[in-house]
Amino acid sequence: MIAPKEIRKQGGKSLKITWSDNHPSEYTFRLLRQNCQCAMCVDERSGAQILKKEEVPVALDGLQVNIVGNYALGITFGDGHSTGIFVYKHLRKICPCEQCKAESKPAEAKIYLDKEDLKTRVD
């Protein structure tokens, strides 16, 4: 499984990840917030987008980043949102670098197993 080798939080602005294959990724916290997969942002059953991506503030800070198990990051954003679990596989998929953008195909495969099996944390 692809996993980070190094994770650097650059103040509140961006998150840098160096992956186990040495590929570097840099994400703004806005981009991460837009791609949150939690039950409030994406409908668990239909997979439909609930969060309106364009409504995420342009200058949204990341307050805290913590590692979840061996497979994901938990992020607390400046707007108080913290229910998302950012699975490594998904993070790598949304890498905004030119190379990854060029390689990524439309219609992506599902990130999770069955919706029954893997749910993000909703307390």
Partner: peptide, 9 residues
Amino acid sequence: KLEVVEEPA
């Protein structure tokens, strides 16, 4: 051990 390194912006 993997850790999140905090750096100034």
